[in-house]
Each structure stands twice: as structure tokens, then as C-alpha cells.
């Protein structure tokens, strides 16, 4: 019972942090379950995939109603992220826990660096219906999307850390549209691999249930309080958490 409450509270924390910082929460849920609750990494990834689908479905609807997420672009790219996720879902059951832990540590370091380099505030007006922009280098975007899908399936994250830079920097999509569209794409990307985890016995319902409910509650709270919180302080705290977690994951990779 106490463990169940702990999972819900952990899910809420991941949901709040994820929504305030524009992440799916998977990058926090996997370390929470492995380092905090001692779950094997692959089981933690299965639970995390379910949670990132919940946050994606909940927030993508809002972004679509505001016409910030681009359904056509998102669906075209998610054809490739889903292919990558299918490949990653198969690879995940071939790699050992130490390799997965090392890959996750590398992702955490990359996330911390990305967070430090992110600009301080919103610099773009929110686009609405009829907003027109140019899409360039689609081919590179498709390749990047396959890569994002593989990473998502292997490590249980939404893959926004790859998709957003690919769309924004490579394809020339405005940052807000890229972020919202990435969020929309997470659902299909994660479900393509979550299906494999589900049938192969990689999702524990007793852990996934409380965590998913917690993440949903946390993301709801986070989206309502985002405007009241100093994101610079939060981002610094997050970078520290990521750095510490990366260190612990490296230890896990070396000592397992």
C-alpha cells in the first residue's frame, strides 16, 4: 500500500516536472523506478512508455485545439518514428541491462546539456490556424525521426529531445509548433513499442497503473501552475537531478 502511494507520488512529481519543462516525463520515471524502487530497467521502460502515452494524449488534444500542433507534419513524421520504435522495441529485448543503463546515462547527459543551452523565455508568438511556414530538408527529418523512435523504444522516453531539434533546427519548423507536434507524435511512437512490451510481458500492471495515474495528475497540476513558477530555478534544479541520475546510471552500468 505504501509502495503504491510512493509510485503515485513519484508519478505526480515526474508529471509536474515534465509538464513544466516541456518533457514527457519518461526521463524521470525510468530512473525513479530503477534507482528508487529497484525495478529492472526493461520493466521500468515498459511502465514509462505507458506514462508518456498518457501525457501525450492529454496534452496533444489541447495543442490541436489551439492549432499549435501540426497534424499533417506530425503524422508524416510519426510514420518514421513508429518504424524506429518497432526496431527499438525488438532491440530492447536483445540488449542487456548494463548496456541499456549506459545508453540511458548518455541520454541524461545530453538532456542536461540541452536544458542548459535552452533560451530563457518564450520568443515566439503562438501560431494559430492558417499559420504558414516553410518545411525544409524533409529527408533529414525522416532519418532523425527513425532515430528518435529507436531511442524512445529502448529507453522509455518520448523522444522529444531528438524530435524537437530535428524539426526546429533541421526542418525549419517554428519552436512552439515543433514542441507541440513532437508531443502529438509521442503517442504513436511509444504505442508502437509499448505493444511489443505488452505482449512480451514487459509491462507490470501493478506498477504501471499507479504511475500513470500519478503522471496524469502531475501533468494536470504542472500545466496549470507553469506561469507562477520561475523556470530558471526549476531548470537549474532539473540539471542537477539529471547529472546526479546520470552518475547513478553509469554506476549501475559498471557495477551490475
Amino acid at each position: 500500500m505504501i509502495a503504491g502511494l510512493g509510485l503515485i507520488v513519484g508519478g505526480i512529481a515526474a508529471g509536474v516536472f515534465g509538464s513544466l519543462l516541456g518533457l514527457g516525463g519518461g526521463i524521470l520515471i525510468v530512473p525513479l523506478l530503477t534507482l528508487g524502487f529497484g525495478l529492472p530497467l526493461r520493466e521500468a521502460v515498459g511502465v514509462s512508455l505507458v506514462s508518456v502515452i498518457v501525457t501525450s494524449s492529454a496534452s496533444a488534444g489541447v495543442y490541436l485545439q489551439r492549432h499549435v500542433a501540426n497534424l499533417r507534419l506530425g503524422m508524416t513524421l510519426e510514420l518514421f518514428t513508429a518504424m524506429g520504435a518497432l526496431i527499438g522495441g525488438l532491440l530492447a529485448f536483445l540488449l542487456d541491462e548494463r548496456t541499456l543503463a549506459a545508453l540511458f546515462a548518455a541520454l541524461l547527459v545530453y538532456a542536461a546539456i540541452s536544458m542548459l543551452r535552452r533560451p530563457g523565455g518564450a520568443t515566439e508568438a503562438e501560431p494559430g490556424a492558417g499559420y504558414v511556414y516553410r518545411i525544409q530538408r524533409s529527408g533529414l527529418g525522416y532519418v532523425g525521426s527513425v532515430g528518435a523512435g529507436v531511442i524512445s523504444a529502448l529507453l522509455g522516453v518520448g523522444g522529444g529531445l531528438v524530435k524537437v531539434p530535428v524539426m526546429h533546427l533541421v526542418m525549419g519548423v517554428p519552436l512552439r509548433v515543433a514542441t507541440a507536434t513532437s508531443n502529438l507524435m509521442i503517442g504513436i511512437t511509444a504505442s508502437a513499442s509499448a505493444i511489443i512490451y505488452l505482449f512480451r510481458g514487459g509491462i507490470d500492471p501493478y506498477v504501471a497503473g499507479p504511475v500513470a495515474v500519478g503522471v496524469f495528475l502531475g501533468a494536470s497540476v504542472g500545466s496549470r501552475t507553469a506561469h507562477r513558477i520561475d523556470l530558471r530555478v526549476l531548470r537549474t534544479l532539473f540539471v542537477l537531478v539529471l547529472t546526479y541520475t546520470a552518475f547513478e546510471m553509469i554506476r549501475k552500468a559498471l557495477l551490475l
Binding site: V50, I53, S57, I195, A212
Partner: peptide, 9 residues
């Protein structure tokens, strides 16, 4: 619930 989550997208 989990199947509904996964099937929604």
C-alpha cells in the same frame, strides 16, 4: 486501462 492508453493514439 493500459490497453485503452496504448490504443488511443
Amino acid at each position: 486501462g493500459l490497453v485503452t492508453v496504448i490504443a488511443t493514439p
